[in-house]
Design a protein around this nucleic acid. Sequence first.
DNA 1: AATGCAAATGTAAGCGCTTTCATGGTTAAA
DNA 2: TTTAACCATGAAAGCGCTTACATTTGCATT
Lengths: 334, 334
Amino acid sequence: MATIYEVSKAAGVSLATVSRVMNGNVKVSDRTREKVLKAMAELGYKPNSIAQSLASNRSNSVGLLVSALHGSFFGNMMSTVEDVLRKAGKHVVITAGHSDEQQEKNAIEFLLDRRCDALILHAEAVSDEYLLELSQRDVEVVLINRRIEQMAERCFYTDNELGGYLATKAAIDKGHSDIAYISGPLFKQDAKERLEGHKRALREANIAFDSELLIEGGFHEAEGAQGYLQLTAVNKPFTALICANDEMASGAMTAARERGVRIPEQLSVVGFDDVLFARYLYPKLTTIDNPIQKMGNGAAHWVLEHVYKQKKPHQHINLFVPKLIMRDSLVAPA
Amino acid sequence: MATIYEVSKAAGVSLATVSRVMNGNVKVSDRTREKVLKAMAELGYKPNSIAQSLASNRSNSVGLLVSALHGSFFGNMMSTVEDVLRKAGKHVVITAGHSDEQQEKNAIEFLLDRRCDALILHAEAVSDEYLLELSQRDVEVVLINRRIEQMAERCFYTDNELGGYLATKAAIDKGHSDIAYISGPLFKQDAKERLEGHKRALREANIAFDSELLIEGGFHEAEGAQGYLQLTAVNKPFTALICANDEMASGAMTAARERGVRIPEQLSVVGFDDVLFARYLYPKLTTIDNPIQKMGNGAAHWVLEHVYKQKKPHQHINLFVPKLIMRDSLVAPA
DNA sequence: AATGCAAATGTAAGCGCTTTCATGGTTAAA
DNA sequence: TTTAACCATGAAAGCGCTTACATTTGCATT
């Protein structure tokens, strides 16, 4: 593999000049540039990105932390982030935190060791303090799906409270008043906010919140199924079930159906996220659009602009507004 | 950030000794090692992985090419590969090829530029020749879901023909004889092989293959729905529909249901891959287990062993055997 | 104590770039 | 023509490590 030295010799110029031609930040005469480019082409020269990184103190890589690499929710986000950054010649190192504090910290340390220029984090388990401290270090930190006051302009998040509100409101508008709710794990901020929204919608409709109709789940399908069974065990009838994400909605629907409950005739179900398979479900799931791609896109562009000084004036939107996606799983009660 | 030089000064030894302590490949006296480790701890020293890479000519990174970052199929694979390699301190650079020849080539070039020590490729669009040539270069190349004779021991793949056979055989065993098939894009080898298996099963059962009951799809949900509609337009009755992957099976089920067809009573459906959402579908999808995680696992361990010389004697299995996963979408014809 | 050897440690030359600073060559103003 | 000002280029010092080779140390022999 040819090095810059061989190019400089072939072109009859110094190393420095070759470097300048590559980087294009310092003026080089046209004649010289031609010579250098020709030599590069002839030698099939490719700069060694590792040497570049060492010399420039820039790794040109961005660390991305997600909870899990599989799953529709993260797939979409990774996809967007990778796309935007790779088009800018940066690369993305992806790690998984599994919603566990220690694993998230390990993953972040790993990214730091890799000398990432910036970190895009979907961190669920570490504390605000940890993240604030991290952002004092010499990496730029951007947060997805989380808001911390002191670093608000680097946070890209959904209005989860509004989303939770919209989901329940939709059921109420259809005429439901006995509404159960399976939340996410309440140590997670988004799960908590969605539940808040649910309660607000009930309050506005003068429906008393009944804690027996609330089950705390874990965002996984199995907990949706299990949550449904627990709810029926209480022996309080409900005609609509709101789930804090689509996975749990799917699990709940399956469990209900196995019990012989017809959906949506006997039970309406609403999800949250609008992941890809929401429309594959039967009946097609009514859910809340959680614009995860847009958040990924926002975060990636923020990094390009602030870390790599790309000056495409990009309008940064930090707060994304969820929308109701009406499909078939929500109908008026019998 | 402390450098190796500061550590060596603090410990009162040379740079080389510190390096040796870190890498552990050359013997260092216990007393010296203690001193060095102490100095490291006190200074909070972390080696600069970029400098290490430059000096050792090892990037410690593995490139992974998939068709798309979202989607259950790839999610599982990425997840496995990342997990195995990160536990070994390597990092994974993930790129997407979008099943397009030029995009796949670009992605591979990108990984090469990043000086990856090895490439794990799920390449669908580039030619065997291209891959063979690539493997002559100074990266190790491993293939997933593809077999090229000349590099057989670095290929990890499913017996797609057998999978296709099993799917159709299952329908035949249930008593079906009018069986339609929606294939994947036939320029892809796996799609072709699955179709071959389908034909073999028909042949063995003395059922004539009817090309009017074959539709070429593209592995996406929409093409499953569309494929179903095309099949019905032919006006040849069929009681079972085999799809070359789960996405298309889901699409076909949705389309059929919208036409008022009850599944599985009026139409049995079989998928392929057993992606996560296959069991979320209604009815739960009978499908073929495609052990994509195992392939990812095999590929990652191959890399650890052959590129990074980790000598955990790992039994490499190159050919994975698919299995039928019987669920609810396949029953005997009415 | 002198000798020989192996083990432990040190020295220094890279790895392939970027970037600061110095230098020589041009051009324009005086 | 002289001088100043500027521009393009080159020389060389890093960036923080690894590793071949040289040197020293410690220990068992004699």
